[in-house]
Amino acid sequence: MRADAKKNYDHILAVAREMLTGNGANASLRDIARKAEVGDGTLHRHFPTREALLEALLREGFEDLARRASELEQSDDPRNALVTWLREATTVTHNYSGAIASMVSAIADENSALHTSCVMLRTAGAQLLRRAQAKGAARMDMDGNDLFALISALAWLAEQPPLVPRADHLFDIISGAILTSEQQ
């Protein structure tokens, strides 16, 4: 990529990150292009669809979460490792409010621009879950798909204004339902 194209790409991502986090999840690609001070054509050359832009934004966070899962696999406490990662994954996902529905759809759609990143996230969590299950720390009737769904649900709950004050409590209830009372 040419230096000027890379600069535009990075700038568009920075503006999109700012606009799509928090309450700006519904910002249009046109609004992002305007705020980035690039033409619609420039934005669409880099990100032909909103989903492609979301993928570029989420990929780095999901790659970090996959690395974090690998680190946590070394922990002596698989129960704590799973809950720590679940909390971090929920936070990263919640940072892009409005992307949750796209993520849930993308996991089953191999043609989605988000598919690979979402599968990476699901796989990282599934590894921690299986490790916790092997140690008797997590219920056996769950898999990575269930964990991915719970991350999505927790992130969605945390963006509902009446539930924001209860988000940590709800996280504790859901993570408690994943864990078992016994650990081998």
Rank of each mutant, 00 (worst) to 15 (best):
A99S: 15
A69T: 04
D76E: 03
A56R: 15
T93W: 11
A108E: 08
V104Q: 11
E60F: 12
L128E: 12
T21A: 03
L29W: 08
S117M: 05
H94R: 15
L43S: 07
D109T: 07
S105Y: 05
I107W: 04
L57V: 01
D77C: 02
E63H: 08
S102I: 00
R45Y: 10
H46M: 02
A89T: 02
E71N: 08
H94A: 06
A56C: 03
S97A: 11
S117E: 10
L43G: 07
A81W: 04
R68S: 03
L72C: 00
V92S: 06
E51V: 01
I107H: 09
E110P: 02
N26H: 13
L20D: 08
E37M: 02
E88S: 12
A33V: 03
I100P: 01
A89P: 03
V119H: 09
D31F: 00
G39H: 14
L129Y: 12
Y96E: 07
F62S: 01
A81G: 05
L72E: 01
G24Q: 02
V104E: 07
L29T: 14
D109C: 01
G125N: 04
A99N: 11
T49D: 01
A81Q: 12
D76Q: 10
V119S: 03
S97M: 02
W85Y: 13
M120Y: 02
R34V: 08
H94L: 13
V92A: 15
Q74I: 00
K35E: 14
V104W: 04
V38Y: 15
L129Q: 13
L54Y: 13
N95H: 13
A66D: 10
A108T: 08
R34L: 06
E73V: 02
R59P: 00
D76F: 09
A33T: 04
R68E: 07
L129I: 12
K35C: 04
S28R: 06
T42H: 07
G24H: 09
R130S: 08
R34M: 00
Q127R: 15
D64E: 14
D40T: 12
L82F: 08
I100N: 07
R130F: 05
A89N: 05
L53V: 12
L129C: 07
G39Q: 08
R68C: 01
R68V: 00
E63P: 00
G39V: 00
N111T: 05
T116S: 14
F62Y: 15
R45Q: 03
A36K: 15
E60R: 15
Q74C: 01
L86F: 14
G61P: 12
L58N: 09
G98T: 09
V92Y: 11
R59E: 04
L72G: 08
A36F: 14
L53M: 09
E63K: 10
D31E: 15
L65S: 07
G61Y: 15
R59C: 00
W85F: 03
Y96S: 11
A66M: 00
H46I: 00
E110W: 04
V104S: 10
R30T: 11
V104L: 10
R79S: 13
L121H: 07
G98D: 06
R79D: 05
D77P: 04
E71I: 06
A113N: 05
L121T: 10
S105C: 02
N26V: 05
N95Q: 06
A126C: 10
D40F: 11
L57H: 10
V38H: 13
A124C: 03
D76R: 14
N23H: 14
